[in-house]
């Protein structure tokens, strides 16, 4: 295998794997004669996606919006809290156990409470997306700060740098790769959050579309929604990965020129 072939194959692999999975699924449906209401064939799902693209797109965009807003809030809040937790041992020992406890609560459980407080609509979805996705951001940013090399700290201190200068000149740049690595995880979590909220009780978004299609025994549409979520998730992940490479080239030692 030549080097070019190797590269081509590497690029093609994800598509081949996906195609393989879909073909397997299609064949299984045909061979075992699975009724459509249980699991529609992929070709049927794609057919629905093409036929009802306008509706799907409308609901997708609603979900995309709530997810994006929740995600941006999570970045803002997560970075601030992460900096505080990473920079101050007092904030760390005070808040870390709380954060862990909070993270252990299944977020599905809080959606009904949010609905009682905020009613149905976009707000509960935004907040669920926010609540579910800020944790990895906090942890990563705090880790980036807390793992500053002691020698680097000594260099700064011996220069007479203030805590603030150490934070801005060493801590923040050092936490950047950690932050961007967490964004990839956080954005998928944000999606899960908003879709959960829409599914538990909402009147908008792709989760709601799936729920109502399911209630009508329209499995093909439900699965089409599922596919749409997966596609959006992958796209958002890819966007975050791209930003990561652009912003923190040094962390990859220049190896990835993206």
């Amino acid at each position: 295998m030549t080097e070019t072939q190797r590269r081509l194959l590497l690029v093609a692999m994800p598509w081949l794997a996906m195609a393989g999975l879909l073909i397997l699924w299609e064949l299984a449906c045909i061979v075992f004669d699975v009724p459509e209401i249980l699991a529609p064939r992929p070709t049927r799902i794609f057919e629905v996606m093409v036929l009802r693209w306008d509706i799907l797109l409308k609901y997708c965009l609603e979900t995309l919006w709530t997810t994006a807003i929740g995600f941006v809030l999570a970045i803002g809040f997560g970075v601030l809290l992460g900096l505080a937790v990473g920079a101050s041992p007092f904030v760390y020992s005070g808040l870390y156990p709380l954060l862990i406890a909070f993270n252990a609560v299944p977020k599905v459980a809080i959606v009904p409470i949010l609905m009682i407080w905020l009613g149905v609509g976009a707000l509960p979805a935004i907040i669920t997306a926010f609540v579910i996705s800020f944790f990895p951001i906090v942890v990563n940013v705090a880790t980036g700060l807390a793992t500053i090399e002691p020698e680097m700290r000594d260099v700064m201190r011996s220069l007479g740098a203030s805590q603030w200068e150490i934070l801005t000149k060493v801590g923040v740049p050092r936490a950047m790769p950690y932050l961007f690595a967490s964004l990839k995880v956080a954005v998928t979590l944000a999606f899960i959050g908003s879709v959960i909220s829409e599914t538990v009780g909402g009147n908008r978004g792709i989760g709601f579309l799936m729920l109502s299609a399911g209630a009508r025994n329209d499995s093909a549409t439900t699965f089409a929604g599922l596919f749409a979520i997966a596609i959006m998730g992958v796209l958002m992940y890819a966007a975050c990965a791209l930003v990561e490479r652009r912003m923190t080239r040094w962390a990859f030692r220049g190896e990835i020129v993206g």
């Binding site: 700064m156 220069l159 007479g160 740098a161 000149k169 740049p173 950047m176 923190t248």
Partner: peptide, 30 residues
């Protein structure tokens, strides 16, 4: 920490996100 000290360690402890020039400029910023 007293003023007017320069330090170098066994590990170079340079900041990977700064160019060599910007690394050396650091004390002048502080």
């Amino acid at each position: 920490p007293i003023r007017g000290v320069g330090m170098a360690f066994q590990a170079p402890t340079l900041m990977p996100w700064r160019t060599t020039r910007d690394n050396i400029l650091l004390p002048l910023e502080v």
